[in-house]
Amino acid sequence: MGWIVLGLLAAAAIYLVMTYNGLVAMRQRVNQAFADIDVQLKQRHDLIPNLVETVKGYASHERETFDAVVKARNEALSAHGPQAQAAAEQQLSGALGRLLALSEAYPDLKASANFQQLQSELSNVEDKLAAARRFFNNAVGEFNAAIQAFPAVFFAPQMGFSPREFFDVGEQARTQLDVAPNVKF
């Protein structure tokens, strides 16, 4: 009887260690995925001043649009956490959209090789950012499911594991993202 109890305790201890290690690995995957988003956001933020300067050369009287982009970029740089960053990035996307829309009113700007290259780079970064967000949200979903599943739900909080937030663009942005962009050249 003693050996059975000892065997059950050893099995429970092994299970706890394996579960703990699995949760640690998932938490690290979430942290890495968030770091990947940060890398893409930094690239995006680094492109914006060049894009603003290029547009300024052709549309210097559009000061309000430039100021909105710069303000949104600064707010995005100072945002912390998935929800705050998602909200700030949504504001930045709106401001960038208005900046890029200026090319319709300025044919010389639209034809500028520098503007086209920056626009292409920004599009590439946006694609990578979307992929990084999907990977992060997938990692968060797996992690949250693991800590809320039976029997981990009973001991995960005591071991320091708590649910993480998704990188959510918000309801308004989601409806805008559902509409295909209209690209003209």
Rank of each mutant, 00 (worst) to 15 (best):
E165D: 12
N114P: 06
A105E: 05
L41R: 07
A113D: 15
E62Y: 00
G22T: 00
L109T: 03
E53I: 08
L129D: 11
A152Y: 08
L47A: 01
L99R: 03
S78F: 11
P151Q: 07
A76I: 03
R27E: 13
K56M: 01
A25G: 10
Q83F: 10
Q117G: 05
E126A: 15
L102T: 00
L92D: 06
L47D: 02
T65F: 05
R73M: 02
A11H: 10
P157R: 01
F150M: 04
M26P: 13
N114V: 03
S60E: 08
V55K: 10
A13Y: 00
D178W: 03
P181I: 03
H45R: 09
P163N: 13
E104H: 00
V17F: 01
N124L: 15
R29K: 10
R174T: 10
H61L: 03
F166Q: 12
A72C: 10
Q172P: 12
A101W: 00
R133H: 01
A131Q: 14
Q158W: 14
V153R: 08
L9M: 15
A149I: 08
A131E: 11
N137D: 05
L6Q: 01
E75H: 13
V17D: 01
A76L: 09
A12Q: 11
L41S: 06
S123L: 14
A130N: 13
R29M: 11
D127W: 15
E165G: 06
Q40A: 06
F161P: 13
E64V: 11
Q90C: 09
T54E: 06
A25C: 08
V5G: 05
G97I: 02
S112F: 08
N144C: 14
G57H: 04
V52F: 05
S120F: 12
Q43C: 01
R29S: 12
Q90P: 04
F115E: 00
L100A: 10
F166T: 12
G141D: 02
E75K: 14
A146K: 07
E64D: 15
P181G: 12
L99M: 04
R98K: 12
R134K: 09
L177N: 12
A132S: 07
V70K: 12
N138R: 09
R44F: 08
V70T: 15
S93Q: 14
L100W: 10
A79Q: 07
N50D: 00
